[in-house]
Simulated scan of single mutants.
Amino acid sequence: MNEHIEYKGYKAKVTYSKEDDALVGRVMDVDALIMFAGQSVAEVKAEFHAAIDSYVEECALHGLEPEKPFKGSFNVRVGCEAHRKAAYKAKAWGISLNEFVRVAIEQAVDRHAQAAAVTTVVKAPIATNDQLYVPVGVASARRVAPSAYGRSH
């Protein structure tokens, strides 16, 4: 059983746990781990409501703003020139401005994720035949002798 339920803008996925012989739910689209369980649909819904209410109350008690699930839409102020350029580029590509912005955001997020996880080889002229550039970080490179890697060129 895979079912999504919603309460106060929060969505949860409910599955059947064979080990626990219960319906178990987890709130989606927030970093906070909010889980609940019940033996029946009515009980799991009540526990979900109680879990959300408790989460919101705990946040208030500690002076924290509760996480809100992302809706998938937001307003962005980019300035007239950037707006014009983006609109013309989207039109040239045959897509909507919303689609253009969505793609741009996905590419920026993917680039950032890759840069954080993977080092980049910097392609630059090699000064001598006995040195080469190797990756040491996202935005830097250093020279090392090929023998450091057991290579001879």
Rank of each mutant, 00 (worst) to 15 (best):
D31C: 05
H4P: 04
A42Q: 14
C80T: 13
L23K: 01
G79L: 07
Y133D: 10
S96P: 04
S147C: 07
G38R: 03
F74T: 13
K85C: 07
G25Y: 00
G63R: 08
G94D: 02
W93M: 11
V14Q: 00
R143Q: 09
R26A: 10
E6N: 14
S96E: 01
A145V: 04
A108D: 05
K85Y: 08
V56G: 07
G137P: 04
V14G: 00
H112Y: 08
E6K: 11
M1R: 06
R26F: 02
V109D: 01
G25N: 02
G63T: 07
A12M: 03
K11L: 08
T120D: 08
R143V: 08
H4L: 14
Y10M: 04
A60Q: 11
G72R: 03
A148R: 15
D130N: 15
I34D: 00
I105T: 06
K18F: 03
S96W: 02
Q131D: 09
V44H: 00
S147R: 10
A124Q: 15
C80Y: 15
Q39M: 12
L23A: 02
Y10K: 04
V76D: 00
P125C: 11
V136N: 11
F36A: 01
A86P: 01
D29M: 00
A82M: 10
K123I: 11
H49V: 05
S96R: 03
L33P: 05
A86S: 08
E65F: 03
F74G: 14
V121P: 06
R26D: 05
Q114S: 10
V30H: 02
E81G: 10
